[in-house]
Design a protein around this nucleic acid. Structure first.
Lengths: 230, 230
DNA sequence: AAAATTAATTATGAATTCAGAATTCATGTC
DNA sequence: GACATGAATTCTGAATTCATAATTAATTTT
């Protein structure tokens, strides 16, 4: 009945709403750490930066608040959500459960090419580790996790994961720059890649789950070392 | 340093932003099924209904789109997200993983009172089943799952769960009105309650996981029976 | 001089206005 | 009579404006 309109909607060039673009740009600023945690958002400043009026910016802020990236304070604007140690302790088990499920589904659904790509990246991770190239290590690590999420072909899972991951992204980034347990993490990644290649869903699930929980310990340790714990 | 202002912020009466209130009201309308899936949202209609201007309504719509409850179509407004069978097949494993984790954490963290309350509700569920009281059964079922989520004391988990649950809420409601596997579900609920009382986190995890996956089968069957499958 | 009260400024909340796109309806053509 | 073209209407997108709350600055009082 309304089918044609939907198909047209797909085919037609359609500029996304300005608010959505602003939301993406603002999300990027927050995730990249350009806007620090706890920082107050100045509408005027951002409207000038993005060259838009307050209306789309405020709509974008509402979207990010729904994602948990910022907190709206009535009549007092918004602040960038700050992640406490307690928040990380709550968030990582959720991330672990979601990535575990992603691994299980990826083990069943991923194409051979996707698995080969993950295996290749796992090898790259190993090399970055041996070279001691931290930024590269961090980047590849991200890519592997993204590849698994992508390979599970579950949009709802991807969305849920992104929502939680966004809240802890900065903390993870911080941790990889201060302290790591590279040796162990590289081994775990190899096991995960192997489990996926063997299509062992349950194993991939538990390995990813454990991997994420181990990462929590690492992140918490890094934060206490860095002293930036709150 | 800024502590006092935060404390003041907590203590002070602060009316939530109108957009947030509108979002809550609109969310309710959608979850209660008053606005059907696929239905087009008419801004004018809703502004008149809520007695607000378009600005807060549009901000609320942006929030709900971030939650996945509605879909924004550039220059063409928004529609209530419709949940296909495929969506349910993707969403339920996520729900299962999240509720499994909730059960595991609840087994560790819940107070004895909370567990007793869950046990009591599980008994009520049994009675509603024997009486054949469907609405009551559905309501208690909801309450039990909410109680477990609440007992796990993990705000991030609760938030993630709510986001996914919202998308399948209508489908589950529909299913409970058409077809059920009450007998089995009641048994499963008893097992879950017992596992929680015994503080067996892993068992509660897997039981809740399986329970949710069984529910998926039931919901899918109900939808094909009802013919409202798309 | 310190604290408190009040005035001024600034920022946010929400309605309105203006601009542009999509839909609908009417007219004309084949 | 069906389809296409074009005008009118309606709806959405975004900027502006108005109102109100919060913050800062200034003045007064102790």
């Amino acid at each position: 009945m309304e089918d044609s309109s939907q198909i047209r909607g797909q085919l037609m060039i359609s500029r996304p709403a300005l608010a959505v673009e602003v939301a993406n740009a603002l999300r990027e600023l927050i995730l990249e750490g350009e806007l620090a945690s706890g920082e107050k958002i100045r509408e005027k400043e951002l409207t000038e930066r993005f060259g838009v009026s307050r209306t789309p910016l405020r709509e974008a802020m509402k979207m990010l608040s729904s994602e948990g990236l910022i907190e709206l304070i009535p009549n007092r604007g918004a602040i960038i959500s700050q992640t406490s140690d307690e928040d990380l302790i709550e968030a990582f088990p959720v991330l672990a459960a979601l990535e575990g499920l992603a691994g299980a589904q990826a083990a069943k659904r991923a194409t051979d090419d996707e698995l080969a790509e993950i295996a290749r990246m796992t090898q790259d991770l190993h090399e970055a580790f041996e070279k001691g190239d931290r930024p590269q290590y961090f980047a590849i690590n991200q890519m592997i996790h993204n590849a698994i999420l992508s390979a599970c072909r579950n949009p709802i899972l991807q969305r849920s994961h992104a929502a939680v991951a966004g809240q802890v992204h900065r903390a993870r980034y911080q941790a990889n720059h201060v302290s790591t347990r590279w040796q162990q993490a590289v081994i775990e990644h190899k096991q995960i890649s192997d489990a996926l290649n063997d299509r062992r869903a349950d194993l991939a699930n538990s390995l990813l789950n454990q991997h994420m929980m181990a990462k929590l310990s690492s992140v918490l340790r890094a934060r206490t070392e860095a002293g930036s714990n709150n």
